[in-house]
Structures are given as structure tokens and as C-alpha cells.
Simulated scan of single mutants.
Amino acid sequence: MASLELRDSRVEVVLSGLERLGALRGDVSVALDEVLDVRPAPEPFAELRGWRLPGTGLPGVIALGTWRSRGGKDFAAVYRGRPAVVIEVRPGGEFRRLLVADENAEDTVSRLRTAVLAR
């Protein structure tokens, strides 16, 4: 399962080998000073917007890859029954939001918010 890691001054979405295959891309990285908000998403599939392209998806089961909408591109790595973390990003980068499944979403949100505020 994907993980959110803090490395230097960046938040990185680290994907497993199978997730890379399903998402049709490698890891995703965003600078901490580009992060606008971090919040938990108990129902991550309700957060998806637009069309999946490219990636893998089965509604309500798995969402891996890029979702495109009028609001910009989002990256998703979410799974049925697992809460997620939503990271809102400033306009201008590759993605506007990152949605990543995380069993400890509340703790991860706290850790990321602390890192963002420290910047």
C-alpha cells in the first residue's frame, strides 16, 4: 500500500511495485511549501472527481492513478474500507490534490500539518 513520507522539505507518495503498475507512473512528490491543506477522508471514494486517465479503477474498490477534472489533476491511491489523507496543493504543480489511503489517517494528518506549519 502507498505511504506518505516526509523527505527533506517534501511530502512523497511512495508506491509499491504493483501500485506503480496500476497507476501507470512512479512516486509523486510535492514541496511542503506548496501544501495548502491536509485533512482526513474517512470516505475517500467520495473525494474522487473527474475522469481516470491514466490509471486503474473499479468504483468503490480501488482508485490508482490520475483523475482529471476542471479543477485540475488529482493523484489517487485509495482502497475500499480504508480511510485516506487528502493533501490540497497550490495551483501550478502537476497535481492539485493527492488522495492516499492510510490506516492511521488522523495521525498522518497531524504529522503533515506540523511539518507544513514548521515551513
Rank of each mutant, 00 (worst) to 15 (best):
L4K: 10
L6M: 10
L6E: 11
R7E: 15
R7Q: 13
R10M: 09
V11K: 03
V13R: 09
V13D: 07
V14W: 06
S16H: 12
S16C: 09
G17N: 10
L18Y: 09
L18S: 11
R20M: 12
G22R: 13
L24C: 13
D27N: 15
D27T: 10
D27P: 11
D27I: 11
S29V: 07
S29A: 12
V30Q: 06
V30W: 04
A31S: 13
D33G: 00
E34S: 11
V35H: 05
V35C: 10
V35A: 07
D37Y: 00
D37W: 00
V38W: 01
V38G: 04
R39V: 08
A41P: 08
A41L: 13
P42L: 13
F45W: 07
F45I: 09
F45Y: 08
A46P: 00
E47Q: 08
L48G: 00
R49Q: 13
G50S: 06
G50M: 07
G50V: 11
W51I: 06
W51V: 12
W51F: 07
L53P: 00
P54D: 01
G55H: 00
G55A: 03
T56W: 06
L58D: 00
L58W: 08
P59I: 05
A63I: 08
L64V: 08
L64F: 12
G65F: 07
T66P: 05
T66A: 06
R68D: 05
S69R: 05
S69E: 10
G71W: 06
G72T: 10
D74P: 02
D74V: 05
A77T: 03
V78D: 08
V78E: 08
Y79T: 13
Y79S: 11
P83C: 09
V85N: 07
V86P: 03
I87G: 10
E88W: 06
E88N: 04
V89H: 09
R90Q: 15
P91C: 05
P91N: 06
G93N: 09
E94K: 14
E94Q: 14
F95M: 04
F95A: 06
L98I: 12
L98Y: 11
D102M: 02
E103D: 14
N104K: 14
N104T: 11
A105Q: 08
D107S: 11
T108M: 15
T108W: 03
T108E: 15
T108H: 00
V109F: 11
R111Y: 01
R111D: 02
L112E: 07
R113Y: 01
V116K: 02
L117S: 15
L117G: 06
A118S: 14
R119E: 09
R119H: 01
R119G: 01
